Simulated scan of single mutants.
Amino acid sequence: MRTKATMIAAAMILFLTVFLTACSSAGGMPQERERTLGKQSGDILVGVAWPFADRNEGFREGLELALDEINETGVLGSKIRLLEKDDHSSVTDGLTIAQAFANDPKLTAVIGHRSSVVTVPAAQVYDHAGLPLIAPSSTAPGLTSAGLDRVFRTIPNDTQIGTTMAEYAHSKNYRNVAIFYTNDEYGRGLANSFEDGAKSLGMQTIDRLSDYKDLNDLRRIADKWKLLGCDAIFVAEVMPDGASFIADLRKAGLDVPVIGGDGLDSAALAGTAGAAAEGTVVASIFNPSAANDTVRQFVQHYKAKYGEEPGKLAAQGYDALKLLAYALDKAGSREPSKLTQALKETSSWQGASGLHSFDGNGDVRDMPIILKQVAGGKFDYLN
């Protein structure tokens, strides 16, 4: 059933992507956008696509804080205005939004989406319409491997994260590792990267699992993993399903260490999985206690505005808009061609989540990957 659903989803994505990108290309939209924005004055329009209602997790708050700070002085003599749309983590909704953004020649750039399964096809729509895209959350390698010219990912990709987590597993002397993953763009990419990294370090992947029927089925699987000498499990899943799997795993009687990718980096991990989450190690890209002036100021201002400590996605929203403002100022223009070139030339720009430079594909380079471990129902930072 899952395989059939995956095939249907893939077919739908292919159909919609071909259809929408064809529409975007019609009429020379990149050239029209350049002409329009070359003469435009007034607000600088930036589209934002995100699952605000269901999976915001501080992202909008980070954006709003950055917007307040930027518009105190303005950029290029103007203020930035955000056009926010909720994509509901849906491919169909995401592509509908992407097409609407693509058809607006007054739009300068786009920030979004959260899920790789949405961002990967949407990025093609933006690129064909001449729109630079800043992707602050989607980690699938396919986003930047398609040869698109205007995509800039501000979070390490699955290859970087998977390799880092494999290195951590090796440092803990884990030898036989099982992988549980979500069968989508994010889960497959992260699972593959971890498995490749583990193999290169001499570890063995004893099994890969993307689904189980019920707790009895998982008990059977757990018993098999015990017989195979499983000494750790890597989870390439997002919340809340990742937490549910960890809780079920403990109920099934398997008490080996669990490590996971950035999809588990949520305060809800301990809240959902309870005591079962204790000891789980996950990847992140933001440490609010980092000894850095940019981080300290961001955390201070965020707490003053919202009364709570910011998380990873608040930092990503903040950095995405601040980076865009920096590049606009550096380009001296809101024209996408000049903005794109300024982003490509960005080197060691300091954001709340670390330094930002981009390689030739648009992937961020040299951003630190931080390890966090659940202890006492909350995260402790390991590095």
Rank of each mutant, 00 (worst) to 15 (best):
A277Q: 13
T119N: 04
I285P: 01
L76S: 03
R150G: 06
A283F: 02
Y186M: 02
K305H: 00
A122R: 00
L82P: 07
L14C: 09
L254Q: 14
K213A: 15
S24H: 06
T163D: 10
T92S: 13
L45G: 03
K79G: 14
A268I: 03
L131E: 00
I97R: 09
A283N: 00
V256P: 09
E309M: 12
Q316I: 10
E84C: 14
G354D: 04
F379W: 11
V117E: 04
A166F: 09
V125F: 07
I13N: 10
A232G: 09
G74R: 07
G47P: 12
E237G: 11
R60W: 03
N292S: 05
L254G: 07
Y168P: 01
A166I: 02
L269S: 08
R296H: 12
D262G: 11
L20I: 13
D104K: 14
G242V: 08
L324Y: 01
G263I: 08
G62C: 06
G38T: 07
N157Y: 08
A53P: 05
S193A: 15
A325P: 12
R35E: 13
S115Q: 15
S353K: 08
V110Y: 00
D86C: 08
A243D: 11
K251I: 06
K344T: 07
L131T: 05
G62A: 13
S337A: 12
E34P: 03
A169K: 02
D93W: 11
L382R: 11
T144V: 04
D231N: 13
I285C: 08
G332P: 10
A315T: 06
I70N: 02
Q341F: 07
M12K: 12
I70R: 09
V258W: 14
Q99R: 14
F180C: 04
N361T: 14
N103Q: 08
L215A: 15
A123N: 03
H170S: 06
M1W: 05
E185W: 03
S138I: 12
A22M: 09
L95E: 07
G77L: 08
V48Q: 02
L323N: 01
F358D: 00
L328V: 07
K199G: 06
D93Y: 07
L95D: 02
Q99Y: 10
L215T: 15
F101G: 00
A49C: 12
F52M: 10
K338D: 01
V151H: 01
A283S: 14
I370M: 01
K106H: 15
D319K: 08
A277R: 13
S115D: 15
R33N: 07
A352I: 04
T164H: 08
L63C: 08
A315N: 02
R296N: 09
Y302M: 01
M367F: 02
S337M: 05
S90P: 11
E57D: 12
V48S: 04
K226H: 15
G307D: 00
N103P: 05
E345G: 07
A291V: 10
I285E: 00
D231A: 06
G202T: 11
A49W: 04
I233E: 00
E57T: 06
V125R: 03
D380S: 14
D217L: 04
T280Q: 11
E345H: 04
S41H: 10
S347T: 10
S89F: 02
D231P: 09
D217W: 01
S348Y: 04
T92L: 11
D255G: 03
S116K: 01
A122V: 02
Q300L: 15
N192G: 12
G202V: 05
L95T: 11
L82I: 06
K199Q: 14
I134P: 01
